[in-house]
Design a binder for these strands. Sequence first.
DNA 1: CTATAATGTCAACATGGTTGACCAAATATC
DNA 2: GATATTTGGTCAACCATGTTGACATTATAG
Lengths: 160, 160
Amino acid sequence: MVDQISTIDNPPLDETLTPDMREAALRLAIEQFYFGYRAFTVQPDRILAERGLGRVHHRILYFVGRNPRISVNALLGMLSVSKQALNAPLRQLLDMQLVMIDTATHDKRVRELSLTAAGAELEAQLTGTQMQQLQTVFAQVGANAEAGWRQVMRSLSGQG
Amino acid sequence: MVDQISTIDNPPLDETLTPDMREAALRLAIEQFYFGYRAFTVQPDRILAERGLGRVHHRILYFVGRNPRISVNALLGMLSVSKQALNAPLRQLLDMQLVMIDTATHDKRVRELSLTAAGAELEAQLTGTQMQQLQTVFAQVGANAEAGWRQVMRSLSGQG
DNA sequence: CTATAATGTCAACATGGTTGACCAAATATC
DNA sequence: GATATTTGGTCAACCATGTTGACATTATAG
């Protein structure tokens, strides 16, 4: 695999390739995806570990930060986890006063989640490392490559 | 977040953006990365689940397939896990006759791993769904966007 | 002969997830 | 107003995946 990365020079797919070369190119892409994603999660994981938190907490902080006053149910939907899986880490974030909870005025069953100032600060730190990492890479490869990357990612996640 | 995806039209970064817009663009990229990667692992996970296997098994099958006669130690290095973590799933794959083991001729301590025919078949099926997914997306977005995506991924994983 | 390396295995533990069951409070419906 | 449904919380049992530490085996190296 390291072999492939060094000997095949990151070829794009086109119709002139033999099936074998096409397969090799696609396998290389899979590996780049895997290692790229892994590299992308290293820094936040390190910061989280210092506070005894994990990736779940990061995801909660991220989505609550992006969606202030989000309901528990809506958050569950975004994270695609069960409420039981959310319960423990969310309660932990509430105890640590990184997330705060309010009862909705329109429906008193609904609990609305928001970040506290401290929570927003931690979230900014976590996401900041990833934003910086992306910014560095985007600066390296240029706006054209960046736009291509976005297009592929959007299409993959079904938004394109 | 869905809001952002639908209202901001996937802007590339450039120096004319305000800091706020720059941050929004980078956050959008982070989300695309997260959801894109998640979408990328859904299909293999489904196939694996049918056989009672997990992602670990896929990773083992993949790297052994790409590196026939790989030693246990080398495999550990690629997966970045402890030998204890590898032990159980690897033994399972051996028991299921998807991976086979040989003693190296040059050093009888070393055990060399390869896929059996059945293992190669399953690996091809698993990786095949991902290759097809990528191929579809690449065809949709064109060779230029694909090349950009590869550049970004390579740079992220530290190969560029 | 002894030290080191490659592998395998056992135990204890942490994390993050699942499903099922059940409860309370608030709202919706008949 | 009685009843059903929705939202949320919690307990328990379980599974998958990972960790570290300790120890044994075998083979190679010095």
